[in-house]
Design a protein around this nucleic acid. Sequence first.
RNA 1: GCGCUCGUAGCUCAACGGACUAGAGCAUCUGACUACGGAUCAGAAGGUUGUGGGUUCGAAUCCCGCCGAGCGCACCA
Length: 571
Amino acid sequence: MRTMSTLVARLLNRLQPAFDALEVGADPVLRTSDRADFQVNGAMALGKRLGRNPRDVAQEIVDRLELSDLVSDVEIAGPGFINLMLSNEALVAQLEIMGSDQSLGVPAGPAATVVVDYSAPNVAKEMHVGHLRSTVIGDSLCRLLEFTGSTVIRRNHVGDWGTPFGMLIEHLLDLGEENAVEGLSMGDLNTFYTEARAKFDADDSFKERSRNRVVALQGGDEESLRLWRVLVGESVRYFDAVYRDLGVLLEDYDVVGESHYNPLLDAVVRDLDAEGLIVESGGAACVFPPGFTNREGEPLPLIVRKSDEGYGYAATDLAAIRDRVDTLGADRILYVVGAPQAQHLEMCFAVAAMAGWLGEETEAIHVAFGSVLGSDRKMFKTREGGTVKLKNLLDEGVERARQALIERDADEDLEIIARQLAMGAIKFADLSTDRQRDYVFDWDRMLAFEGATGPYLQYAHARICSIFRRADEGVEAGPIALDEPAERALARHLVALPDAIDATLESYSPSKLCSYLFELAQSFTTFYEHCPVLRAPDDATRASRLSLCELSATTLRVGLDLLGIEAPERM
RNA sequence: GCGCUCGUAGCUCAACGGACUAGAGCAUCUGACUACGGAUCAGAAGGUUGUGGGUUCGAAUCCCGCCGAGCGCACCA
């Protein structure tokens, strides 16, 4: 367990007793500020509660503060703000901690087991942009959670069960197993699915066969299961290829699809019934969690078993909650699932709570995200109106990045770097907008090398690496001094990494880390313009600036890695 | 109809109930190439925060009404 504390934690340690002296537990309301390094706003609210002049309260707090080792200047301003300027010594000390720590001074959070449910494509169906968001956001959250000491269990809840498998298996047989496998391994899942669907809609005998096949499959027929496994296997292999392209951490063993929960479904209904929660309605076994109503204002059920005795996704999701809590020991379950599923998930969580499967000590959180839109602000589609294949999208990104590199006469490792740039661009564009909102997919904006983009951050990193390549033998980083404003501004930004990560995990919003990194890159380039490093006026200054470069590069690289973005040394 | 999410600069987005100038980026305009990678930097311009009320010493932020957008609302997942 890492124990180092951040500057914010240290400031709070000093502030809290001063506030407690006036009112136990009063919140200092410590915030960053554009007028100082930090501002403390708590004196105003406290003054009001105590019926005293807030400026006097602020003064009394300041009188009680012992901050001289951290802060160089304290000022009371306006109606009762307390402005704090960090001392350069404190900044340098914090930078030294960062430099000597593998985790860059980011403290570990409380140890917890977190199950992250993300990506979740459907077997025998193409991955599309919706899966992109889930995959990219989920992957980043996993990386962040692991970085801060949580035990992360990834669950790729693929759609590998249900009525469509009857028609898919029959279609597989019609094509001939070998032919079908060949087509599937080339990743042409859309064609396969659409053909099956078309036959199902047009051909009654096919429809009949499909239905019989579902029954056989669900009844455990060996041959049907074998064919089903072929479909699943080929699809998972295809998903893997996309994950490798994207550079996400999902592995085969993270694939735990809907079928995994089949053996647990009977118990879900039985145990809900034992709790007296099951109500039969229209032949279906339902639970009516309070507070949910339908179009007519009547209570809305969560249907755990359909009137045809089959199970729907509600049963599966409930079984998954139990499995994750009981078997995996989850303290928290994150569902990185699109915003339209909000009501369904809320109902599942509510029912799980009613049944006692989710309690005080375990929480389920819907990490919802908005849709990817085209330039017309409608759901992102191809020109012909079809679904955009994720694979094609990624390939197009690589091609565009390659062209951009060729225009700039870069030819070294062109293929590798084009891929890194493209994935960085796509991921950063996705992660940097608030995940709740819909966002417009725009190649030109995300691949621009200006502005808040992946390539800009990668470029900032590559430039720093170039400094080290050019440094002469024997020129090394050394003790940091913060004499120039640009040096101090950079230092101030560097030490805020723990706060950025905190805020990111607090709200499960990688966009906050994106903003932090973009601002860091900006303050680095400002420093870079104003403060010559290799041509610094003297050795001590050069050594100090090299240290700042080193820390900046490491912070950018680690930060980008937490987003799942690579930081090439040249580009 | 009910519920959820959301309306901030021409465009894409920030802002955890706090400060006289509501911040960035893109695009626009003006500067800086004797360059440690100009895929850059410095600067300008651009906003009665959808609208009308309310709470507060203080509201983009909280509450209510209205207008507008997207999504969801019983057996497909």
